[in-house]
């Protein structure tokens, strides 16, 4: 057999979908292309294979399932607590208006448990879960040493980072929906459903209420993208998954505390959590968009800043783990 194993010509133009093969180089073509007879190179769609695998791998992990389980349990606890509390006929939280938003309304309409559940998990449980997933994204791979094998596969650094971020975003959405669906199921089981009263006092039909609940879940998921970007950036800074997770969750707690200190009011509009609870404005009639727009704009800013920082860091980093 004649060996056509010469290294490819140094020709920038051959750097296309089938980079290593030249028409005369049958041996290389055999080893290169998936289908040398038709001359087709790798399909651009194949690049999504990593994202698919990442999703499957992430959501099959016990850790992810446990996180989602904790999130699903929160509305169950709230629902059961409200049910027990109001057995005598009094309305929950009616006394001093304490507790998460909308909690007083749950007894009238189970759908309000969705809003209460999201309001209760948004300050800590949801972002903590995101922090775990985002913080572990790159640092966890580095820690296990699997990062070097993904990169020599070659996953491509930008592609891997985008895959990780897309997976984290997907987790944001899934986590929020898990809370919402769990809350809706518990609310429907324990309390009556039907027309509901908005914050503004008007009444809207159940179908529209359901639509707003879904919209709120989407807004909450979008509110978490800033934390996700921050966590991913932290994840590119270290080779320890635990350190990245702890740093992200630590930052989250710090920002939440600083957001409570009145003297820092000049800085507070830049805290990623500052406008989180503005999702309640979706329950006004008409919807009050100001806070929502600010929230989503701020999340976009965080994604842009920390996304770029993560990219700049990860694409130039020496992989020594």
């Amino acid at each position: 057999m004649s060996r056509a194993e010469s290294p490819p010509k140094r020709d920038a133009k051959t750097e296309n979908a089938r980079p290593m093969a030249t028409p005369t180089d049958q041996g290389a073509a055999r080893k290169t292309g998936p289908d040398p007879r038709t001359g087709r190179g790798p399909s651009p769609l194949w690049t999504l294979g990593l994202f698919r695998d990442e999703l499957v791998t992430t959501f099959r992990r016990w850790r992810t399932i446990a996180l989602l389980g904790v999130l699903a349990a929160v509305p169950v606890l709230i629902g059961v607590a409200v049910k027990i509390e109001t057995r005598g006929g009094s309305s929950a939280g009616g006394g001093g208006g304490e507790g998460p938003a909308f909690i007083a309304q749950i007894t009238n309409n189970g759908l309000f448990l969705v809003f209460t559940g999201l309001a209760a998990t948004l300050p800590f449980f949801l972002p903590m879960a995101i922090g775990v997933i985002a913080g572990d994204a790159i640092a966890g791979e580095a820690n296990a040493g699997t990062l070097r094998y993904l990169l020599v596969a070659p996953a491509g650094r930008t592609r891997l980072l985008l895959t990780k971020y897309a997976t984290t975003m997907t987790f944001c959405l899934v986590a929020t929906l898990v809370v919402a669906v769990s809350a809706f199921a518990v609310g429907a089981l324990l309390f009556p459903l039907g027309e509901l009263t908005t914050i503004s006092g008007t009444r809207i039909g159940f179908a529209e209420g359901l639509g707003r609940a879904l919209l709120i879940a989407l807004v909450v998921a979008a509110s978490l993208t800033g934390v996700a970007a921050l966590g991913l950036f932290v994840s590119t800074l270290t080779n320890s998954g635990i350190a990245a997770m702890a740093t992200t969750v630590g930052l989250l707690i710090t920002v939440q505390i600083l957001d409570q200190i009145p003297q820092l009011h000049a800085l507070q509009p830049y805290f990623f959590s500052h406008y989180w609870l503005s999702f309640a404005d979706l329950m006004r009639d008409p919807v009050y968009w100001d806070g929502l727009v600010r929230d989503l704009g701020l999340q976009g800013l965080y994604v842009a800043v920390f996304g770029s920082a993560a990219w700049a860091r990860f694409t130039t980093k020496d992989i020594t783990a």
Binding site: G49, L50, R52
Partner: peptide, 17 residues
């Protein structure tokens, strides 16, 4: 599954095979 993952990381690897 480890191997499937490493193979998926390669954008030139044919998922059909």
């Amino acid at each position: 599954d480890n191997l499937l993952r490493y193979d998926a990381a390669d954008p030139t690897a044919d998922p059909r095979t």
